[in-house]
Design a binder for these strands. Sequence first.
DNA 1: CCGTCAGGTTAACGCCGTCAATCTGACGAT
DNA 2: ATCGTCAGATTGACGGCGTTAACCTGACGG
Lengths: 219, 219
Amino acid sequence: MKRVRANPGEGTRLREEILAAAEALLVERGSEEALTLRAVAGRTGVSTPSVYLHFADKEQLIEAVCLRAWDELERRMREAAQGIDDPFWALGRCGHVYVRFALDHPVQYRVLMMRQGSGSAATACFGYIVEAVSACVTSGALRGDPQTLALGLWSAAHGCASLLISQPSFPWPDDLDAFIDDTVWMAGLGTAIASRLSRRRVLPGVAAELDAFADRLNG
Amino acid sequence: MKRVRANPGEGTRLREEILAAAEALLVERGSEEALTLRAVAGRTGVSTPSVYLHFADKEQLIEAVCLRAWDELERRMREAAQGIDDPFWALGRCGHVYVRFALDHPVQYRVLMMRQGSGSAATACFGYIVEAVSACVTSGALRGDPQTLALGLWSAAHGCASLLISQPSFPWPDDLDAFIDDTVWMAGLGTAIASRLSRRRVLPGVAAELDAFADRLNG
DNA sequence: CCGTCAGGTTAACGCCGTCAATCTGACGAT
DNA sequence: ATCGTCAGATTGACGGCGTTAACCTGACGG
């Protein structure tokens, strides 16, 4: 139970241990409110106020934990897009990886994305998505301002992830990955077409037009 | 400062006053964690434990406050859809009203939709959306299982609302209502087309196909 | 051998949600 | 008129929380 004390210069060691304990406890308890500084300190084998040696307050500790996950997400997205020639297809893979990652780290995702204030975390990730969208604009798959397009696409992916996480009681399909694919595909196609339309309106024969278009893509 | 005591049979009066005070404080402070039972009781002019006469705990009080807002949302959505002939167009209006409402009641929306557990609130609303989607399937605008389609569409609307609320520092367009319209339109069109496609793939000339389709709809 | 100072600890404060025990006063029965 | 009753509301307290100030400790350079 008793920790060996760190030598001078090893100040960061305790920081890492606290981060690890906090991450484990956060996942175990399932929410940030249920996480206690006393519990974190206890698991680390250290007194409670020692946490304040490395983190200004509880808020910053939790944020630091979740930022770790965020870094890994960006890494995975770049990895998923690598080696795919068509930028539009690569963007779709990114979307899938994004949602999947959120589902695999629900607590961290909620902390980072479903609270007010801490928006700085997502900024770097947003930059990467804008890049990917820009490539699609260059290739002709999308039209318009990459930043605005990226916001729309991100909101679609985020909606899918967020709803799956916070509303597990909804009648979700059994095959979640297929549903995620459908959603990403829906957002991609919808953005591609909407970005080409000069104005929104309902045509009398819109269903027939859609049928014809789908036939050509299917056949 | 001193409240007049309620007569027997007036037990619900205090309940209403507490609800009102809690709602006001929740909006003022901007988050549920910042809301204090002591503050609620104080504003109502009553002692703290009196809250427990009408609510089992803090959780249920907050939930009751937010459920009020939810009821109004469903009312507004029905109102918006009323008198619109085309079901697909009506569905789009519902989506816009949904996102607008979320933005107008950000705290309540977050409490109800961005936390785990309390999923029962949205179930009724979900039923209404499935109805609206079913009408679109009947009219031929959409194809497939209404429930699954509804989940996808809802996730798009929710993503837009949720991201706007929790990430205000993003570079959102100035005209928010136009952006909401674009997002809703994107989701609707995307779902309509994706529901017609037998399989997902990238065609070499997909951009050209999209251009041609858009030209016919634009012209 | 001794100060110094990074790396901790102890004790406490104020606030929180919650609960058991208590008070109060209007009203029906006598 | 009075008295018991019981819904309506209060008092006081408990344990746990985040956070802070003050204090301890032991390895290392001089």
